[in-house]
Nucleic acid binder design. Sequence first.
DNA 1: AATTTAACGCAACAATGTTGCAATTGATTT
DNA 2: AAATCAATTGCAACATTGTTGCGTTAAATT
Lengths: 130, 130
Amino acid sequence: MKVTRNTTAKTAVLEVFEKSKTALSHTEIQKQLNNVCDRVTIYRILDRLVNDDIIHKISNLDGTVKYAKCNHSHQRVHIHNHAHFSCENCHEITCLETVKPSYIMPHNYKVNEINFTLSGLCPKCLNSNI
Amino acid sequence: MKVTRNTTAKTAVLEVFEKSKTALSHTEIQKQLNNVCDRVTIYRILDRLVNDDIIHKISNLDGTVKYAKCNHSHQRVHIHNHAHFSCENCHEITCLETVKPSYIMPHNYKVNEINFTLSGLCPKCLNSNI
DNA sequence: AATTTAACGCAACAATGTTGCAATTGATTT
DNA sequence: AAATCAATTGCAACATTGTTGCGTTAAATT
Ligand SMILES: [Mn+2]
Ligand SMILES: [Mn+2]
Ligand SMILES: [Zn+2]
Ligand SMILES: [Zn+2]
């Protein structure tokens, strides 16, 4: 097994996640990093963090991909079975850690990951658009 | 309101969907069309078909986007609230029209669309990988 | 057949993600 | 503290996917 190193770039990326209340895209992270490292490096750091279960990937209906910190890394079985909300107005994506879908699968499927994303208007945009 | 025309390209794309049991990406459709029309035209046709509720868009965790025919266009309220399964082995994406997630949303969110994609191994790949 | 405009082809562009390879640097050992 | 080793990085080059503008074509209506 590979050893994971704590580099300055990785630390910087983690700080960005720590400060953010919403999920972030590669581009959004890059903008906040002010040339701390190369574009490619960010991609590779994100891959590593996902692999190490430190962040998780969120795929939205419009094709955008974002990442957010995991607040449940202590769990034995690390599955991201909570919902995400994507606002059509402000385009912010937030984890709804309390919203967990229940469903019944047909037999003979092995489920490893789930991606449950709801889109519409977030509370902030819903109130300001009356 | 705009009038939608039945062009040869659109008819060809619909035939491809009719023949397919799984969801299709833009590239997969293009390959099956054998230069019936331009790449850009396929994008525009897909946009139109989604708008007319004839097909629906599916966004997968790995970032790929696919489309599938709607088998419920007759419904009054047209919401795609069924699950989709994405096989990590054969990469086929299928609609699970019978699998509908139930969940409880916090107040002050307006949900317009949902995207519920499960990934893992499909029955075909599960059986052949013992 | 004439009219109207949705739809098309083409070219050019933009955004996003990937790969190979030499150079760097974090962690470990001596 | 210096040497070691491989994980990580930067850079350049490339691939894929999706978008836009504009002049032309063709489906539908009159
Ligand atoms: Mn989340
Ligand atoms: Mn479906
Ligand atoms: Zn919002
Ligand atoms: Zn499969």
